[in-house]
């Protein structure tokens, strides 16, 4: 109820990103993820962030889609940046009579840039793709793996259920956190935190159990919906995506 998490939530629209099929977008996403993971240069990070921002504009998604990070997370990031600054390293800048090493904090900022960039790409996929279209796309992409004995049916079934479970589990976590605030003040915060986490874990396990029963009921190899034909929007996304992947993978300065 009070969750502000918008993972894999579709925003209705008619943009080229919406009209492109899930297969094309997932392929580009995979390319960008691999490119950025193996070449996390500042240019690559900038290209991925730019892709997300341009995607939001082209998709006419509006700034409201961007999640608002919880304050404790922002505080934790702030503290970690202070430690990054204290760790020093090249390059150095002169502040008054002393030299300050920026190597640690720059490395950390790049790590955040990579992490948030990958998260942003995933969110962009979710905002412009109906979650029901993802399992058929994954099925098509993973088809070659079935020839080498990979149990793709199980993987797709698990993916389908995980996508459906995500909002439920997020809602459960938010509810448990809200309930923890009803306790009287005082007592060990660590104990309270552990109690919240254990209850959230129990709730998640129960959800998983329900989904396990669903798998038992319908079987692992339930038919996955057929994917639509390739269209012009797919072509545009694939061409632009290939260029972006090239930039990200080959950009200098890693």
């Amino acid at each position: 109820m009070i969750s502000r998490l918008h993972l894999l939530r579709f925003v209705d629209g008619r943009s080229v990103l919406h009209r492109a099929g899930a297969r094309a977008k997932v392929l580009v996403l995979i390319g960008l993820v691999f490119g950025l993971s193996f070449n996390p240069s500042w240019i690559s990070v900038g290209a991925v962030w730019g892709t997300v921002v341009v995607g939001i504009v082209i998709g006419r998604l509006g700034a409201g889609v961007v999640p608002r990070p919880p304050k404790p997370l922002l505080a934790a990031i702030g503290i970690s940046l202070v430690f990054g600054l204290l760790s020093g390293g090249e390059p150095f800048v002169s502040v008054g009579s002393s030299d300050v090493g920026l190597g640690g904090i720059l490395l950390q900022l790049r790590l955040f840039g990579v992490t948030l960039g990958l998260l942003g790409l995933t969110l962009l996929l979710g905002w412009t793709t109906r979650s029901a279209d993802l399992p058929p796309a994954a099925s098509w992409i993973m088809a070659p793996l079935t020839r080498v004995g990979v149990p793709t049916g199980e993987v797709i079934a698990a993916l389908t259920l995980a996508v459906r479970a995500l909002p439920l589990v997020a809602d459960d976590f938010a509810t448990v956190a809200a309930m923890s605030r009803t306790e009287p003040k005082g007592g060990s915060q660590i104990d309270k935190g552990m109690m919240v986490l254990s209850t959230a874990a129990v709730a998640s396990v129960r959800r998983a159990s329900e989904f396990g029963q669903a798998i038992d009921g319908r079987g692992m190899d339930a038919p996955v919906a057929r994917h639509p034909r390739w269209n012009t929007a797919d072509l545009i996304v694939m061409i632009v995506g290939a260029m972006l992947v090239a930039v990200v993978a080959l950009a200098p300065g890693a």
Binding site: D172, T175, M179, S180, V196, T199, A203, R206
Partner: peptide
Amino acid sequence: LQHTRLQILA
């Protein structure tokens, strides 16, 4: 709560 299990944390 409707989902009672989520409010009994102990």
